[in-house]
């Protein structure tokens, strides 16, 4: 394959332990620039740990994580990488606008950014509301809006569509693709396999390992499956480690 642009994320032999258990044991992958890449896998498979390693907030035991050409978590990257955790990490006792205004000041983003991200996440009507009075879906959009401040080059989104109503979910995926067209690279995790078809590229993960790194069509072609769920099961069955012990544990 030709490789005109260097990958936005490249990981070599990443190992992470939590307590005594190894969560990631020698994981390698690379994520291309300007695409919406889905990180799919059941909950507990290490998606969040992998994302935390990419953002540079995870204690790692070994390996190399390079993001936008620099080591993950280095200070130059803190302006360039937006991160949305699974829990809405925003202040309950501030209004939506006050939350965003604070994060914008921390990032050194222009003031006009607040209105831009309010529009992008369709929160304009709620901007004066305290976050504690918002619904779950609205809160997670505030969290997403905060990550869009300062127009980061890479967005790492941990299950941003969980618990959202279907219309909103479609809206968010549309937003993700708009951002990608404007040059942002996105890594979006999900445990819902239906969302696979909405990604430009897929990383299927299970038990701390990447089972597949493919386009959605390529994945279906390679496995002969009808949908992502099916493809996932096929891959698990083919995998030597899982096949050996009957596909579970």
């Amino acid at each position: 394959m030709m490789d005109t642009t260097e990958p936005v994320i490249s990981i070599r032999d990443l190992r992470v332990r939590r307590g005594r258990t190894a969560v990631l044991h020698g994981l390698s992958l690379s994520v291309p620039r300007g695409q919406v890449v889905g990180l799919l896998g059941p909950s507990g498979c290490g998606k969040t740990t992998l994302m935390r390693s990419i953002v540079g907030v995870q204690d790692v035991a070994g390996g190399e994580v390079t993001v936008l050409g620099g080591p993950a978590g280095s200070s130059a990257l803190r302006h360039k990488v937006g991160y949305v955790t699974q829990a809405e990490s925003v202040y309950d006792d501030l209004t939506v606008r006050q939350n965003l205004a604070y994060f914008a000041r921390v990032l050194g983003a222009p003031k006009s950014d607040v209105d831009r991200v309010l529009t992008q996440t369709d929160l304009g009507a709620n901007s004066g509301q305290l976050v504690s009075t918002l619904s779950g879906g609205q809160r997670s959009r505030v969290s997403l809006a905060a990550a869009l401040l300062g127009t980061p080059e890479l967005l790492v989104l941990d299950e941003p569509t969980v618990g959202l109503d279907p219309v909103l979910r479609v809206d968010l995926w549309t937003l993700f693709h708009e951002l990608a067209r404007a040059g942002t690279s996105l890594l979006v995790s999900s445990h819902v396999m239906d969302e696979a078809t909405r990604c430009d590229r897929l990383l299927l993960m299970r038990e701390g390992e990447i089972l597949a790194d493919e386009t959605p069509d390529g994945l279906l072609a390679a496995t002969g499956a009808r949908d992502a769920e099916d493809a996932f099961l096929t891959l698990i069955a083919r995998h030597p480690r899982h096949a050996a012990d009957g596909g579970d544990s």
Partner: peptide, 17 residues
Amino acid sequence: RTGTLERLLSMPLGKAD
């Protein structure tokens, strides 16, 4: 506990700030 500290430390906020 809510993750706001993690968010801030992934941003260019100094510990002293």
